[in-house]
Amino acid sequence: MTDFPLKTTDPTEAVTPVRAFSDRHARGLRWFLAGPAALVLSILLMASLPLALPAGRGGVNHLVLPVIFFPLMWAVLIILPVASAQLARLARIYLLMLTFCVLAIVTNIIF
């Protein structure tokens, strides 16, 4: 995966076809990560965290805490790609988290 360093958008630099292409891709990737990827990942996190969190004294923390923090998780996952300068690294982190969540859910369903 190609990284998109922000210095390519420096207006003092000449606009080359390569730079315009990478800017378009960076913008597209940013929209994808902050939009559908953030929504899917936050739902998957809410679904898989009950399998990883401790139940606690009342026996419900693992079920309730992911639901309570779902709005915060979603909001943070929206803001991160917009604020981040290292888009490619963030995309890899999102993909890794997505893989872990899907694996946890599939493993739980199968076994």
Partner: peptide
């Protein structure tokens, strides 16, 4: 957002994964 999503989305999602 929590009050809106808790029963409409959170409970069904948790039920689907943790309670089949």
């Amino acid at each position: 957002a929590f009050l809106s999503f808790a029963v409409s989305l959170g409970l069904p999602v948790v039920a689907m994964v943790a309670f089949g």
